[in-house]
């Protein structure tokens, strides 16, 4: 999603959000990530004024008042956390672990293929299709990508071929490189 993203070219506008919209975004995020309940106030304080950065290809990025990117979404999809946020609060997404061999491909933006999730070095937690997941790696502590499953984990194990998780945001992509916006 952010493979060809460029800070200068891809941003089409920044909007200040109405407080009613802020509220609905907050509740939507809480709904999709119930584990964030006790921490959402520190991530998105109620009094804070967030902004939305509209980008090309129907991508929207939610930023807080100091300009740090917090969440992003594609069209009307689910809000997904940025990796920087996920590194701070790694617990609120279901995690999938890929093996060592897959790391370099994921870091260059490839989707996660099923064999990389089923081999001995990998591990899966059970999730349904179309879930937002954090991609962890064998022997590493932090997440390296955020993706959306295209198959349920049961199917991934069964079919074991093709794309299992769609790579949405990975280390060193356009969103990661984006600087804080004033």
């Amino acid at each position: 999603m952010f493979k060809k993203f460029d800070e200068k070219e891809s941003i089409s506008g920044i909007l200040q959000l109405k407080s009613s919209v802020q509220k609905s975004i907050r509740s939507k995020i809480l709904e999709s990530y119930p584990h964030l309940e006790n921490y959402l106030d520190t991530i998105l304080p109620k009094k804070d004024a967030f902004k939305i950065v509209k980008c090309h290809d129907h991508i929207e990025v939610l930023i807080n008042s100091s300009g740090e990117q917090q969440f992003f979404r594609h069209r009307e999809g689910q809000w997904m956390p940025t990796l920087r946020l996920l590194h701070k609060y790694p617990f609120f997404l279901p995690m999938q672990q890929v093996d060592k061999g897959a790391i370099r491909f994921v870091l260059s933006g490839a989707n996660i293929m099923c064999p990389g999730l089923t081999s001995p070095g990998a591990q899966m937690t059970e999730v349904e299709k179309d879930t937002v997941v954090a991609i962890m790696a064998e022997g590493k502590e932090h997440a390296l990508a955020i993706g959306k499953t295209t198959l349920s984990t049961a199917d991934i194990a069964k079919i074991n071929k093709g794309i299992g998780v769609e790579n949405c945001h990975y280390l060193n992509d356009g969103l990661w490189q984006m600087k804080a916006i004033k």
């Binding site: 921490y39 520190t42 590194h87 609060y89 617990f91 997404l93 279901p94 999938q96 962890m136």
Partner: peptide, 19 residues
């Protein structure tokens, strides 16, 4: 290892984690 991928805040860890 199984525990590592468990969802939900871990006990004894204060968030946010500084990476």
């Amino acid at each position: 290892e199984e525990n590592r991928l468990r969802i939900g805040p871990k006990e004894g860890v204060t968030y946010p984690i500084q990476v």
